[in-house]
Design a protein around this nucleic acid. Structure first.
Lengths: 227, 227
DNA sequence: GCAAAAGTGTTAGGTATACACCCATGC
DNA sequence: GCATGGGTGTATACCTAACACTTTTGC
């Protein structure tokens, strides 16, 4: 067993982060992708935003920095949590890069006012082949999102601060890909005691206005299964 | 935005792995620790086994290699899965090291025949201050183990291949820290259809011998909640 | 025959599911 | 007054939780 190695030999790998950012547009789940152009291996393929981790920052810092710099999503506009670390030798065909993957969620308002040209909100149903190992990353990300939806309040990061119970239900339906009974959903979610009535009502709708609710806590909470 | 950096500058961080290996001895949960002596910061504190990731290996490869080399646990004797990546700037007070944490489980037979002096099976109730950020790592590890126990067949990696239903129940009781009703437990676990009767019976016990069961699959499976 | 752990059912309470109609609003 | 989505209750099936005694074996 070699007890010491020269520092240069230890520091062989680039450390990166990548983020799978989810958002709901028009009742469809979307992810934020950028065009990857890294000939000869990756030419005009979509990939998730990310970048290298710096000497002076944690992986969390790096995600926040790259999301702000590369896709104009400031940290205040996105909820992130660590997903998995991807370390396959050839996951980046050009160099050895180990990447800490993150999932993220943004509220509809962020997407509505999003106008950065170098990144695209792509409906997940239209995701094709992605750059690097981002196919695997997406598979883990969507699976994690589905899981978290069922036993945490992560839905709060995909909704405006004030929302109707129907909107909340639609988050579950869109992501889990199933229809949910309206009465049963309401009974269950209200019984969990994580929502509060705001007293406000929807405005400007051409039908009966719905009551607006908010999550009691701004932090994600663990729950008994919601669905 | 700097578009290119010199390779030396990118490759700043040592990448490591650490593993929290669980095992049950005498109906008590234990973890495998080694004495850490890295003056001046860590002098005779227990820490989890681990080490650097090599150029030519994945994080999974590195965990297997370090478990075999440093604590004499060959890969065939331990189930591992990725836990979380720890990247705090000062998590190792000596150098910047980013570490991919793993949890692992070993069967009682492995512990019984374990005779390597440089590592210790420590009851988790007696864990004190650990080296590096291994306190945080342990907190996440035990929480992950508890979670997985409740919705996967991870218990199979903490038991011999053939086991009694009482032994299986004890795995749950020891890790979840609660008593479980024997009749209800049996009904539930058998209904999940993950166990098979082996036809064999306990031998050499001084009371009524119990039937020996085995898991149908050697791979971990997701389940509806067991407990 | 005694000590030790194995094995086995029932009941009651609570939770999940299935299901359909009236209400408030804008136009 | 019509179209649109909001809001509500009940009955049944299922699952969960609580609970105690008989059986088999070694000594």
């Amino acid at each position: 067993m070699t007890m010491k190695k020269a520092p240069e030999e230890l520091r062989f790998a680039a450390m990166a982060v990548d983020a799978v950012i989810f958002g709901i547009i028009d009742k469809k789940l979307h992810v934020l992708v950028q065009n990857v152009v890294r000939p000869p291996h990756y030419v005009n393929m979509p990939g998730f935003p990310g970048g290298l981790i710096d000497k002076t920052e944690t992986a969390e810092d790096a995600v926040r920095r790259h999301l702000a710099d590369k896709v104009h999503l400031p940290a205040k506009d996105v909820y992130t949590e660590q997903l998995y670390t991807f370390s396959d030798i050839n996951r980046d065909k050009r160099n050895r890069v180990i990447s800490v993957g993150y999932i993220g969620c943004v509220k509809p308002g962020v997407i509505e006012s999003y106008d950065y040209d170098d990144a695209t909100w792509l409906p997940v149903r239209k995701l094709g082949k992605l750059a690097y190992d981002h196919d695997d990353m997406y598979a883990m990300a969507i699976s994690r999102l589905r899981g978290k939806l069922s036993y945490t309040t992560i839905a709060q990061f995909l909704l405006p601060s004030f929302f109707t119970l129907t909107e909340l239900q639609e988050v579950y339906e869109v992501i889990l890909g199933m229809d949910i009974d309206k009465r049963n959903f309401r009974k269950k979610i209200l019984a969990l005691d994580v929502l509060k009535e705001t007293g406000r009502m929807q405005e400007g709708v051409k039908n009966r206005p719905a009551a607006l609710y908010a999550f009691k806590s701004k932090a994600i909470k663990e729950l008994p299964p919601v669905i």
